[in-house]
Design a protein around this nucleic acid. Structure first.
Length: 574
DNA sequence: GCCGTTTTCGGCCCGACTGTTTTCAGTCG
């Protein structure tokens, strides 16, 4: 069995790159490690199998040296090079790389002139003026760094949803195999499909008392500590630093315990209120009617007992959902089109035929290819000539396909003045266009709003991509008046994207109700850069569900003609 | 460190903005 998974290997390679960069190594060697990390991330298969059959060695950017390191990581979970670098370079310097405005050169300057090697030291220096006094630094730089540190501090302790979901599932599987465990359920924020997660929670159904279960857990490999919180709850801490809260219940009380463990607090408070109004008590982890224990073997039985329909976990947030009719929610199988996908023509890894094959296998009826536009030079944005080539290529493949269609799309930069990135006669040749902001994030709120609204005035724009530009836990959204943007989308008939990249999940689910109230159509865009990116869609579906959206709200639930008609209507009417 | 209808060595992505300077290095996407 592999000692480290794909994400872990990719992270280790990125760490090596960061360390090498901070050591002042050859920048191309640094880039090689970063490129290899990306390649591994996009590898659609098990790493140990890929090592065995040689497919991993054939990946672009993986040569003999890095293959050796990957082998070591997969087989042992460790890398001698990484450990050597870790001992050599203060890890605080790596943390500093995550601060916007700080690159290697400035970090090394800070280290060499001020002797600073940790974030708290850096914060002190930014506060007391030592930082601003350095050559090529100033007051504004110091302020920007303070802001960056504050953001990092707030982000620490949280993890991205895809990492959390993977970790939670690994725990769940391991627990489910233990003796006397009848079932294991993931609860908490992961089950509610929150975009970022602080705590992992697992509910174990057991036919022995909790203390017996905890005794078993203590003997699992890697468990460092068990901290009991009460007779049925404990937090397991592992040697690697991860932790999970475990709640043990007998079968007849699973419903109440699972609801409690899933949250949110506001949802539970609203439930307790309803329960009280019906003569029940739901203050603890069981349902009581006076002094009588009411068995709730399932969540459905709990909700039913207090006169409510079962509420899907994604909706259990503000408490307002309690007492409301439960909407039909989107499911992955409702999606007919796979949208927002980059190929090797720009910054993706796969060719159109490879993407088509994967989309067909996943059950889609069409795929919208959207490489970067020409202004995104760093990402290999397509010139007008290269677009023509891609169209010819797509026409040729489409001619060979049955019951599947490739759509000619583009992720066009929205330029600083709000224009799309090609002249109208080129724009007119696309089947659909996603417009996104990738540069000049530092406009004022008014300017940014104006810029995006102007882009929506183009009759060629079909979908507004990742509307706030946020990168979860690493970059704040750019300033923008979303209410005004939504008004404009409603007025112009432009769809708004839920970008399903787990680093973005943008538009935020909290805004979806407001979007739907205005009648805005929502598009789920994978923002895939490789075949592994097909899995992003599931996260986008989770966000749509949290926003209470069903298939009728979603652009790519339409068949290909319906999808094309959506964009065409804008072009003829304006 | 990786790559090669091309060369097993010598390249490797680049243009614009920012904050600092007073002409430009560093950062970013």
């Amino acid at each position: 069995m592999a000692m480290m998974d794909r994400a872990g290997v990719a992270r280790s390679l990125e760490q090596i790159a960061s360390y090498l960069e901070l050591k002042g190594e050859n920048p191309f060697r640094v880039r090689a490690f970063n490129a290899a990390a990306k390649s591994v991330q996009g590898f659609s298969g098990e790493l140990d199998a890929g090592l065995a059959d040689g497919t991993l060695a054939q990946l672009k950017g993986i040569g003999p040296a890095i293959l050796q390191i990957i082998t070591e990581l997969v087989n042992t979970g460790r890398s001698a090079l990484l450990e050597e670098l870790h001992a050599d370079v203060p890890s605080g310097l790596v943390d500093m790389l995550a601060i916007p405005g700080l690159g290697v050169a400035k970090i090394r300057q800070i280290q060499e002139t001020l002797g600073i090697e940790t974030l708290p030291e850096l914060e002190d220096a930014a506060r007391d003026g030592r930082l601003a006094a350095l050559p090529r630094f100033g007051q504004r730089t110091a302020e920007k760094i303070l802001k960056g540190i504050a953001f990092l501090r707030q982000a620490s302790g949280w993890r991205l949803s895809h990492h959390a979901a993977q970790e939670a599932e690994a725990f769940r599987e391991a627990f489910a195999k233990l003796p006397h465990i009848l079932a294991a359920h993931t609860a908490g924020e992961v089950r509610r499909r929150c975009e970022v997660v602080r705590d992992l929670v697992t509910v174990l159904v057991a036919d022995v008392p909790p203390e017996e279960v905890f005794r078993q857990l203590g003997t699992m490999p890697g468990v460092g500590e068990i901290a009991g919180e009460d007779e049925r709850r404990a937090t397991l801490r592992f040697a690697g630093g991860s932790s999970v809260q475990v709640i043990v219940t007998p079968p007849q009380n699973l419903g109440a315990v699972l609801v409690q463990a899933t949250g949110s607090e506001q949802h539970l408070a609203a439930l307790a209120k309803v329960a009280a109004s019906k003569g029940f008590n739901l203050a603890g982890v069981a349902l009581w009617q006076g002094s009588r224990f009411v068995p709730t073997p399932t969540e459905e039985s709990l909700y039913a007992a207090i006169g409510l329909p079962w509420i899907p976990p994604e909706l259990r947030e503000s408490g307002d959902e309690v007492g409301q009719p439960v909407p039909t929610l989107l499911e992955r199988g409702d999606l007919r089109g796979f949208l927002h996908c980059h190929t090797s023509a720009s910054d993706g890894t796969n060719t159109i035929p490879q993407i088509v094959e994967a989309c067909q296998a996943a059950g889609y009826q069409y795929v919208g290819i959207t490489d970067h536009s020409r202004a995104a030079a760093y990402a290999g944005g397509l010139s007008v000539e290269r677009i023509q080539e891609q169209w010819t290529h797509i026409d040729a493949i489409n001619a060979t396909l049955k019951n599947f269609r490739i759509l000619k799309g583009i992720e066009s930069d929205i330029l600083v003045d709000g224009a799309l990135d090609y002249p109208d006669d080129v724009l007119a040749g696309f089947d659909f266009i996603i417009g996104s902001i990738h540069s000049r994030f530092n406009l004022s709120r008014e300017e940014m709003t104006e810029r995006v609204c102007r882009a929506m005035d183009s009759k060629y724009l079909t979908i507004l991509g990742h509307p706030t530009g946020r990168l979860l836990l690493s970059r704040e959204p750019y300033p923008i008046d979303l209410d005004q943007v939504l008004d404009k989308a409603a007025a112009t008939g432009v769809a708004i994207e839920i970008n399903a990249d787990p680093h973005r999940l943008d538009l935020d689910w909290r805004m979806l109700a407001a979007a739907r109230k205005r009648g805005i159509t929502i598009s789920i865009g994978a923002d895939a850069h490789n075949l592994a990116g097909l899995a992003n869609v599931e996260f986008g579906v989770g966000i749509a569900r949290k926003g209470g959206l069903g298939p009728s709200a979603i652009l790519n639930c339409r068949d290909v003609d319906g999808f094309l008609e959506f964009g065409r209507r804008r072009r003829v009417s304006s």
